[in-house]
Lab assay of single mutants.
Amino acid sequence: MSHKQIYYSDKYDDEEFEYRHVMLPKDIAKLVPKTHLMSESEWRNLGVQQSQGWVHYMIHEPEPHILLFRRPLPKKPKK
């Protein structure tokens, strides 16, 4: 599979999560399941490479070739 064609967005966040999206080329996108969110082993098997802790959290129906990921931000110590 062509890992060079996978595009990784910059990371962005809110108060709770860090987010990123990953755009897959058409040949890989056709392998994305339409019935469920992928486990880490499933998206890694497609060639997506990112650190541990990312969760495929949403399917964007109009653009199924874009995978939406998030992971919890580290808890800030209370002052």
Rank of each mutant, 00 (worst) to 15 (best):
S41E: 14
Q49N: 12
K30N: 09
M23D: 06
Q52C: 12
P25V: 03
H56F: 01
E42M: 07
Y8I: 00
H56G: 03
Q5T: 15
V22Q: 01
M58D: 10
F17K: 01
H60S: 09
K30L: 07
V55S: 08
E18D: 03
V55R: 05
P33D: 05
P64M: 05
H21K: 15
Y57G: 01
D14C: 00
E42D: 02
P25A: 04
S51D: 14
W43N: 05
H60P: 06
L24Y: 05
Y12M: 06
L68A: 07
R44T: 02
D14A: 05
V22Y: 01
T35F: 08
Y19M: 01
R71C: 02
S39N: 10
P77F: 14
H56S: 01
D10N: 09
K34G: 08
V48G: 01
M1I: 15
P64S: 10
N45S: 13
L46W: 01
L37P: 05
S41K: 13
S41P: 13
M58K: 15
P72L: 08
Q49K: 13
D10G: 12
L67S: 02
I59E: 05
D14P: 02
P77N: 13
E63L: 05
P74M: 12
N45A: 14
D27W: 04
G53N: 10
W54P: 00
Q5D: 13
Y7T: 14
E16P: 03
S2H: 15
E18M: 04
P77R: 12
D13T: 15
H60K: 12
I28V: 12
D13W: 12
Q50H: 07
H3P: 15
Q49V: 12
H56Y: 05
P64N: 09
K30H: 12
W43F: 05
P74Y: 12
H36P: 00
E42P: 09
F69M: 01
Y7H: 10
E42Y: 00
Y7Q: 07
D14F: 04
K75G: 12
R20Q: 12
D13S: 15
K26E: 11
Y8A: 04
E16I: 14
L46P: 03
M38R: 02
K76H: 10
Q5F: 13
Q49S: 12
I6W: 08
V48N: 00
K4Q: 10
K11Y: 11
Y12K: 10
F17T: 00
K11F: 10
K76V: 11
I59Y: 14
Y7C: 11
I6T: 06
M23Y: 13
A29N: 00
L31A: 08
E15Q: 11
W43M: 04
L73P: 05
I28D: 06
P64A: 07
I6L: 09
P74L: 12
H36M: 07
K78I: 12
E63R: 06
V22C: 06
P33M: 03
E15I: 06
H3W: 11
L46C: 00
E42T: 06
K76P: 11
K75T: 12
E42R: 00
Q52L: 06
G53S: 11
L31C: 08
G47A: 03
L46T: 04
E15S: 15
E61T: 09
M58W: 05
K30P: 06
L37C: 09
L73Q: 05
L31W: 08
Q49Y: 08
K34P: 09
K79V: 14
H65K: 02
H21L: 07
L67W: 04
H65A: 08
K79Y: 11
Y19Q: 00
E42Q: 11
D13L: 10
M23P: 02
Q50F: 13
V32A: 07
N45K: 13
G53C: 04
K26Q: 12
E16G: 10
I66Y: 03
P74Q: 13
R20L: 04
L68R: 10
Q5V: 11
R71M: 03
A29S: 09
K78N: 10
V55A: 07
P64G: 07
P33K: 06
I28G: 03
P33V: 01
M23L: 14
Q52M: 08
E15N: 09
N45H: 11
P72R: 10
S2V: 12
E40T: 07
D13V: 15
E15L: 12
H56K: 00
T35G: 14
K79E: 14
K26D: 13
G47Q: 00
Q49M: 09
R71H: 00
L31D: 09
D27Q: 11
K4N: 08
K11R: 09
L67C: 04
R20C: 13
V32N: 09
E61R: 11
Q5A: 15
K26T: 11
D13N: 14
Y19R: 02
K78P: 14
R44S: 06
Y57A: 02
R71T: 01
P62M: 13
V48M: 05
N45E: 13
H21D: 14
L46K: 02
K79R: 12
L46G: 01
E18N: 02
D27M: 05
V55E: 14
S41R: 13
E16H: 14
M38L: 09
K11H: 09
P72H: 06
K26R: 10
E42G: 03
E18P: 00
E40Y: 09
K76A: 12
K30Q: 08
S39W: 04
P33A: 03
K75Q: 11
I59L: 13
I6E: 06
Q50R: 03
K34A: 07
H3R: 12
P62R: 15
H21A: 10
K76W: 10
D27P: 09
Q5R: 15
Q49H: 12
Q52V: 10
K30R: 10
Y7D: 08
R44D: 04
L73G: 04
P77Q: 11
R44C: 03
R20T: 04
E61L: 08
H21W: 15
T35A: 10
D10E: 15
W43I: 06
E18W: 04
R44P: 00
E63I: 06
K79Q: 14
I66W: 05
K78T: 13
Y12L: 01
L37N: 03
Y8V: 06
T35R: 10
L24P: 00
H36W: 01
H60D: 06
I66V: 12
L24V: 11
L67D: 03
R71D: 05
S51F: 05
Y8Q: 03
S51V: 03
P72T: 08
P25R: 03
S51P: 09
F69E: 02
I6C: 06
L73S: 09
I28H: 09
H36A: 06
K79A: 14
Y19V: 00
K75N: 14
Y19E: 05
P74A: 13
P74N: 11
F17E: 03
V48W: 01
V55C: 09
L73K: 14
V55F: 03
V32S: 04
